[in-house]
Write a protein that binds this DNA or RNA. Structure first.
Lengths: 330, 330
DNA sequence: GCAAGGTGTGACAACGTTGTCAAAAGACAA
DNA sequence: TTGTCTTTTGACAACGTTGTCACACCTTGC
């Protein structure tokens, strides 16, 4: 900047004004400054600028996801990015791998870089550590799962209603022995979906048979094994409700291998690419990650714009997509 | 930091030493400083630090991808992140949407934030604009596609060999009328794969029938339409080679709808989740995005560590996964 | 007792920028 | 011309940190 000022024969402050598009610089001078900046390949130094600026904003937000490579998380990231770029804000992204310690490390690394806001898909179960960040002026929004021990904005799927809807659909098709395959019980969404399953069975006056329930399945392999064990046992279920993406895939794979994919009904939570091309197509309770991310980003920026209203919890609805597997009758 | 110094009754410089883990501070003082820092919720200000530091490093890199939500790109992002976190480096990610202008805007936004390095999956076709960044000391590595008009490191898939391998496999199964469905010809990988297809046909002494070729297909719908048109025409192909992910899906969908999915052979470039569960399973030429990202990040950090050797072009091999669709005989 | 050498600590300037305020230059009316 | 008002410009300090250098304090050896 100093060099640009020297070349344009103006003060450093005038260069600052031109760079920031401030009013009150005569057009003639502005042109001279811009020409000098061009000639010297001048790049505005944003960290230095935000260090000095009154608001201290870095025009950067941090996003903590379960895994940036997983389709749900990356859809979140993309929709957050779309809102952010409109405001010239960039996104720092990191993966927690469902590990609370990594979540905290990422938040700390983001805080060191003075991000303006944080969007967190939480892995830990005590978010009071974020009080410090909020006191420092960082806006915080939770996605997919609600905060614990912290009052903050959140945007979540209506997991209970979605699970109930799926189970209801299976009951409508005549099923009474409906198995449940769920993710780690420590994950809030997994817990709520499982509760939805139980609640709907209760509503339908069907007793929960614990032998048809398998929880804490992480990944395709475990789901495959659990499904195999379940449907080849005595008194197998006539239908399965799977509480997560990869579990649905594992369950379908097991059913296919056992030649039961057209006999045992299957409904999965969360949509899967290509689910319509399988035989039968897989009926799912689809979430809307793009809507969740968009909503979260909008709330975040509203907070950064000064919104001080009480924290809100936004619920995004699910949509059932029937493709065949959920319509198999017992 | 000033407040911490005051509370611990030391100079600001001593606090700096403790925060940075520099040697030459007596343990007693260090403890006192850390206690004070804890009590005041002190957070080290990395932008300010790197502003003053001799090397000026921000411990942040920028990644420009086609779309962070697309599986190939997000796998790249994740493997880059894994290498970066080991060094305490965070990742700024952005999507170009195959638009050269957005690519440049993202690079410019990254540069303003003084990233130490850039990993770029390029959309534009003239990368000489990056000379400025490199002169400023930014390390740059291209992934998936090579740079143009710029001498820089790159890590790419062996697209030509992969395409040839797939076409070869179809010829081995007895096919002579092999259709080709390709992505935008402006994308380097798409061009190279198409050339691989032609080269292998030439090698096999099979004339290219231009009526069996459809290029510039972007997305599932267009691929579906093109496939439908191709296989329902006169003298249809007995096999299809698809040059990209979504095109493979679109082609399969069309074949399924027409009841030809067990008659017309299909091999796709790039693997697809669930491809093994379709009927028939889809034979693919699989890329290894994790290896590409990892390699790129390793090169990037080696450059940041001072490696001044000539720029290199690393090629990551493909792997053919046979699942049935590519083994259908004419 | 003193010089020489090491260790621990702090004062100060500087990184690249912007907020504040004052001064210079121009515009206009009397 | 002068005085007043407005516009344009610049000098300086400050943001939070670290590099440089010097000083004070210990040892150690004679």
């Amino acid at each position: 900047m100093r060099e640009v000022a020297a070349l344009a024969k103006v003060s450093i402050k005038t260069v600052s004004r031109v760079v920031n598009g401030e009013s009150g610089v005569s057009p003639r001078l502005a042109r001279r400054v811009m020409a000098a900046a061009d000639r010297l390949d001048y790049r505005h130094n944003l960290p230095a600028s935000s260090l000095r600026r009154a608001d201290g904003r870095s025009a950067t937000i941090g996003v903590v996801l379960e895994d940036v490579a997983n389709p749900f998380s990356s859809a979140l990231q993309r929709s957050i990015e779309d809102i952010a770029v409109q405001r010239g804000v960039l996104v720092l992204a990191g993966s927690s791998d469902e590990d609370g310690v990594r979540e905290r490390k990422l938040v700390s690394a983001f805080a060191s870089r003075r991000v303006d806001g944080l969007v967190i898909q939480p892995a830990s179960h005590d978010h009071s550590y974020l009080l410090t960040e909020r006191k420092a002026g960082t806006a915080i929004v939770f996605v997919d799962r609600p905060p614990e021990f912290l009052d903050a904005d959140s945007v979540v799927t209506d997991n209970a209603a979605g699970a109930r809807r799926g189970v209801h659909h299976l009951v409508e098709s005549g099923h009474r022995r409906i198995g449940y395959l769920g993710d780690l019980h420590t994950i809030d969404t997994a817990r709520v979906r499982y509760e939805g399953y139980r609640a709907e069975l209760a509503e339908q006056k069907i007793d929960v048979d614990e032998r048809l329930v398998r929880l804490d399945l992480r990944g395709i392999e475990k789901a495959d094994a659990a499904t195999t064990e379940l449907v080849t046992g005595t008194q197998p279920p006539t239908a399965l409700f799977t509480g997560q993406n990869l579990i649905t895939i594992g369950a379908f794979r097991a059913l296919r291998r056992l030649g039961l994919h057209k006999k045992v009904a299957l409904i999965g939570f969360d949509d899967i690419l290509l689910a319509d091309l399988l035989e039968p197509g897989i009926t799912v309770i689809a979430q809307d990650p793009a809507a969740i991310g968009r909503t979260a980003a909008e709330i975040l920026f509203r907070r950064l714009d000064g919104d001080r209203s009480p924290s809100q919890r936004r619920v995004v609805l699910t949509r059932m997509i029937t493709r065949g597997s959920g319509e198999i009758r017992p």
